[in-house]
Amino acid sequence: MLEHVELFFKSIFIDNMVFAVFLGMCSYLAVSKKVATAVGLGAAVIFVLAVTVPMNWLLDKYLLQDGALVWLGPEYADYNLSFLSFILFIATIATMVQLVEIVVEKFSPSLYNSLGIFLPLIAVNCAILGGSLFMQAREIETLGLAFNYGVSSGIGWFLAILAIAAIREKIRYSNVPAPLRGLGITFIITGLMGIGFQSFGGMLTGGGDDAEEANEQVNQVLQPEVIAPSEEEIVVEENKEIDEKVISYNDVNK
């Protein structure tokens, strides 16, 4: 459970799609003039990420990774199809976006009217493909975590576009130097927001510079603490319960 919470907050604040890796900047800049449209696009991104990241996780796990085809039989163990990831991931995304569009149009015309125009935009949104590629690069272990990663990075993107849209609505009343108006000031504001978001870097790591190293250190520090009070039986039972929950959660998802 702890790794779910950690991944959730990490993807929203520390590895924020917009401020840390600049994914989805094109639509972030193009559709952030009004809060209402920004909310629509943000919601669509959360939804599509939540669907495509787990799907691509399954593809990666059972088709693309080195030796992933071993379930077909031992003679397939040497195959490594990972060079096909790009084409398969983008095909999944384009198909899913098309499918979502059809389903939404059929069952909820009102949602389609508010969301529909953004859906074709989303197929070519870097944040969606980026979500899948980062999921692959970071070797996320379980389907549950992949789903969590999709949802939380979507929420991070949603927060970012909501914030910039609100700021842009206000900045219309400010006296910005003429050459900076529009795009220029948006870039600089985003940069300043990015610096603000950098301060979240210490949230899970205790202020370390290198998040990965610090994370390992935190885990090493935390583990003895968990083990130390385990001399008391009650705590041990609690720990067992937590462990069982973790296992059952994963099993359900498999």
């Binding site: 840390a20 890796v21 130097p177 050459p179 900076l180 870039f187 300043l192």
Partner: peptide, 18 residues
Amino acid sequence: IPPAALIVVGIIIWVQRS
């Protein structure tokens, strides 16, 4: 750090439009 790129591009836009 990543946000610096945004600010550099912002300044390029500023110079170009001036």
